[in-house]
Computed example of a mutant assay.
Amino acid sequence: MHTLRNIFHLGIKELRSLGRDTLMLMLILFAFTGQVYLAATGLPSSLNKAPIAIVDEDRSQLSTRIFNAFYPPYFLAPVIIDQYATDPGLDVGLYTFVLDIPSDFQRDVLAGRRPTVQLNIDATRMSQAFIGNSYIQNIITGEVADFVQGHRAIITLPAELEVRVRFNPNLDPMWFGAVMQVINSVTMLSIILTGAALIREREHGTIEHLLVMPLVPFEIMMAKVWAMGLVVVVMATASIVFVVQDLLRVPIEGSIGLFVGGMMLHLFATTSMGIFLGTVARSMPQMGLLMIVSLLPLQMLSGSITPRESMPELVQNIMLMAPTTHFVSLAQAILYRGADFRIVWPEFLALIAIGSIFFLLALARFRKAISSMA
């Protein structure tokens, strides 16, 4: 009981200290509100208002149909240019796509020939260039077929493919971006808050006050873990409920309570990582550099951005030792697919094991750092 009382009072001290740090409070608030909203709405993964120009050398009914097939929101209203304006327009970034329809295009199509339409793409706009290429091919193919046959061709196949999209019927990228940003913010802030709490005490000289008190390193470390973890849990839960569900209208299929339970196990590991980095770094700039080399792999290779199956097998095996891999897996299963504990219990066990290892390593490093200060 004496140890628990010390951990509780030290945690309250950490919360009060955080409450006086205005910049850190603003970072926490922005990460779970503005950043979530921007990640969900600011970076569309589909084609949106791509600038396109058309060189119409045919001036036929078919080329006019193709011209009228490009309209918002996928494309800006196309502009007619001559062939000599193609390269200058691409060079200065006026257009992402320039479509060149050759002369006698309609006549060759009706004659059964296979005329070539040239598409020039500004590949420096990589996301638009990659997605828009397929959009334009489908549009031209459809318009040519419609013009030639007078109606859309109905092809009877031996087997019919019936597509059913589950969990995100409209394939809305905002659903994915909002939840994944909350998950990434949980990892980032849990490491930053605990590491910054330790560095703040070292810079302010209060760590020496703790050393002369009847406290052990375990109590000091556990106080930072539960206090900073509590802040992240409260803010992340509020973000899921008020920002993701209410503001962005993203449906949550599973139990938020089960998700919070998995998040607490994840925080047990990431707050320990923050303590470990806080003992290595001597200042906040050094902490920032360490965050770059540790946080980016944890987020980019965890499956929150790209599926783990698309990564090299060696990377997949290495990332099994990272808590973010299992946290992303259980979060997607619970929040997207409505999974219960019977499905995600392996991820819970993995987080317990990884968190215990990280905690013991951080505690050993913390004890060594404390003894060197004594």
Results as ranks from 00 to 15, higher is better:
S283H: 10
P285D: 12
P285Q: 06
P285G: 07
M287N: 04
G288L: 09
L289C: 01
M291V: 03
I292L: 15
V293Y: 08
L296S: 08
L296D: 03
L296A: 09
P297W: 05
L301C: 08
S304P: 02
S304Q: 07
I305K: 05
T306W: 15
P307Y: 01
R308F: 00
S310Y: 10
L314K: 13
V315M: 15
V315A: 12
V315E: 02
Q316K: 12
N317Q: 14
I318Y: 01
M319R: 08
M319G: 06
L320V: 06
F327E: 11
V328Y: 04
A331M: 01
A331V: 06
Q332I: 03
Y336C: 01
R337I: 05
A339M: 04
D340S: 12
F341M: 14
F341R: 06
I343S: 09
W345T: 04
W345P: 02
E347S: 14
E347D: 15
L349H: 02
A350I: 02
L351P: 05
L351A: 09
L351G: 05
L351D: 14
I352A: 15
I352H: 08
I352E: 10
A353Q: 11
G355P: 05
S356N: 04
I357R: 08
F358P: 00
F359S: 08
L361R: 06
L361D: 04
A362M: 07
A364L: 15
A364P: 01
R365S: 09
R365A: 13
R365V: 01
F366G: 04
K368R: 15
